[in-house]
Design a protein around this nucleic acid. Structure first.
Lengths: 183, 183
DNA sequence: CACGCGAAGTAAGTGGCGCTAACATTAATC
DNA sequence: GATTAATGTTAGCGCCACTTACTTCGCGTG
């Protein structure tokens, strides 16, 4: 055992992510994350100003992961309507496959403007839809409508209002197609 | 000052609601609610098993308020498509006009199945849409699609992704019309 | 290559919180 | 009017976020 951990910052993020996955965003504590990283409870504050800063770091990772996934989902087709549909389905699946990452962006009570880069990273997720939206003669409004629909289905799944993931993904995609075509 | 408060249960709910409004669901504490009700920090536990139980009581009130508001919003017209559109707009407005009540149902980290009546009350909100959905030949799937879209816009407003309330309400209503007509 | 400085850890302590237990006071009931 | 149940209080436990002061160690410089 070395006195210095080596990569505590990353280890804490990992532990925090597991904790959020196990107990939800509220169940995560700095103290428990410290224990899992094998370090004193004061150590994390060398790397994160406070608890929210750690959560914000996770949220940042989440947004990047979302951007990558959604971009990949769009890459399979050139049809802009289909791209929007795939985005919606991918959004829904992300919420279920990575609940901890999803929750950290929407259920952790973070104020985006309090953490540098968060706002921007969040916008970049939706920026993925700019090209197809423009091809359809739509702008931000169309993007927001599609994203809102995807988000609604995702939130309902996480809340337990809906339970069938594939049905929700299919339905979200269908709604996106309808909304994208109606113009 | 009497030793017995008289209606502490209700006073605590009120204080809790104000706290959630001021500081968000995470910022609410039993201790602070006690202080505002002018009572010792242990007193609330005579009326609520734990913190979550108090939040659940608020969530229940929120669902009832939603049901009433949405039912009233539908009453203005007989056209089922228009009814769904008005629901979506009303949903968006509710999230902004009563952020504390809205947040308590979606951002408080409550597990619905842990609190009697919550699940049921939540379903009754969407039950408002049964009649118009059936008139359109749609069922639960249509209801969920409309509600998901409204919820997405509402969540985006609360997150700061969107800022213009009326624009969002209008857009949600338009999306609902499109989705309801496309069948 | 010593060394000294800054980065990264620890221990101890503060104040707040959720919650429980034991006791006090009031309201309700027979 | 006495008993009892409901509803308060005080005191205290354990956990948490965060701070301060001290320690250890890696690294860049003379």
């Amino acid at each position: 055992m070395t006195y210095h951990h080596g990569d505590l910052r990353h280890a804490l993020e990992q532990a925090a992510l597991e904790l959020v996955a196990e107990r939800g965003p509220q169940g995560f504590t700095m103290a428990e994350a410290s224990r899992r990283a094998g370090v004193s409870v004061a150590a994390p504050f060398r790397h994160f100003a406070n608890k929210d800063a750690l959560l914000a770091a996770l949220a940042l990772r989440s947004y990047e992961e979302q951007r990558d996934r959604f971009a990949a989902a769009l890459a399979g087709t050139d049809d802009p309507v289909e791209q929007l549909a795939r985005f919606a389905a991918a959004y829904v699946r992300f919420a279920v496959e990575e609940p901890a990452l999803f929750d950290v962006t929407f259920s952790a009570g973070l104020v985006k403007s309090d953490h540098d880069g968060l706002e921007e990273a969040g916008q970049q997720v939706l920026a993925v839809l700019r090209a197809p939206a423009e091809q359809l003669g739509g702008g931000l409004r169309l993007i927001h409508t599609i994203a809102a629909t995807g988000h609604g289905f995702a939130a309902f799944l996480r809340e337990g209002v809906l339970t069938d993931v594939e049905a929700a993904a299919t339905e979200a995609a269908a709604a996106a197609r309808t909304l994208a075509s109606a113009r």
